[in-house]
Amino acid sequence: MTPTIQTADLHLEPGCNSASCILALDLGTTTGWALRSHDGLITSGTTSFRPGRFDGGGMRYLRFTNWLTEIDRLSGPIAAIWFEEVRRHVGTDAAHVYGGLMATLTAWAELRGIPYEGVPVGTIKRHATGKGNADKVAMIAAARARGFSPTDDNEADAIAILHWAIETNGGVA
């Protein structure tokens, strides 16, 4: 059973230094991430889980596990994780990678008792741009309008997920 995400401390009040550390992810070979730390500071970026030439099939998932553990160690403890919930992929390989990363993420979070939840793509896009079918350019523009400089659409999507989680109290508002 998935732990329930407690949303009482998701909004950072002015002058407050005790926000929960929350992580938002756009899962893929190039994973976009955005993190709100305990002091309310939001950082974001991308990280690649592309396998090397001599890597076995599971190495990207081991690297992802290590990356999550390092984020939790350096910036955590992570109180909750939201990720983009993709229901349809253009290619089979992308679907397999997404499924493997999602399985790795959910197992990692379950072992640590960290609640997690997927957010539908349309919900994220609608919240960020007003259009549930916004393209990559529009998502990047929405992140820039919030004062961020995303390197690509993966980072822009993660920023949008994080802002959705904060502003809607994880969809409860």
Rank of each mutant, 00 (worst) to 15 (best):
G15C: 03
G15N: 08
C16L: 01
N17C: 13
A19G: 11
A19M: 05
S20Y: 04
C21N: 06
L23V: 01
A24R: 09
L25C: 04
L25I: 04
L25G: 02
D26Q: 10
D26V: 05
D26R: 13
D26T: 04
L27D: 01
T30G: 03
T30P: 05
G32V: 06
W33I: 00
W33F: 14
A34Q: 05
L35N: 13
L35W: 15
R36C: 11
R36G: 14
H38M: 14
H38K: 15
D39F: 08
D39G: 13
G40H: 12
L41R: 15
L41F: 07
T43S: 13
S44E: 03
G45L: 05
T47H: 08
S48I: 15
F49M: 05
P51Q: 11
P51E: 09
P51V: 04
P51F: 06
R53F: 05
F54H: 15
F54Y: 15
D55Q: 13
D55H: 11
G56R: 10
G58N: 13
G58H: 12
G58D: 13
M59T: 15
Y61I: 01
T65S: 13
W67A: 11
W67M: 08
T69F: 12
T69S: 12
E70K: 15
D72G: 11
D72E: 13
D72I: 10
R73D: 01
L74D: 06
S75H: 13
P77A: 09
P77V: 05
I78A: 07
A79G: 05
A79M: 07
A79E: 07
I81K: 12
F83W: 00
E85S: 12
V86C: 04
V86I: 03
R87P: 00
R88H: 10
R88M: 09
H89K: 09
V90H: 05
V90S: 10
G91D: 11
D93T: 15
D93A: 14
A94N: 08
A94R: 08
A95N: 07
A95M: 15
V97P: 15
Y98E: 07
Y98P: 15
L101I: 09
L101E: 08
L105S: 03
L105M: 01
T106H: 11
W108V: 02
A109H: 04
A109Q: 11
L111F: 12
R112A: 02
G113E: 00
G113T: 09
P115Y: 11
Y116T: 11
E117V: 10
G118D: 01
V119A: 01
P120R: 00
G122S: 10
G122T: 11
T123R: 02
T123G: 05
T123A: 04
T123I: 08
K125G: 03
H127V: 01
H127M: 05
H127C: 05
A128P: 14
T129G: 09
T129E: 02
T129Y: 02
T129K: 12
T129M: 01
G130S: 00
K131L: 06
G132S: 08
G132D: 03
N133S: 03
N133W: 14
D135V: 02
D135G: 12
K136T: 14
V137F: 09
M139S: 11
M139E: 08
I140N: 13
A142S: 15
A142I: 00
A142Y: 00
A143Q: 07
R144L: 07
A145N: 06
R146I: 06
G147S: 06
G147F: 04
S149G: 08
S149W: 10
P150K: 03
T151F: 06
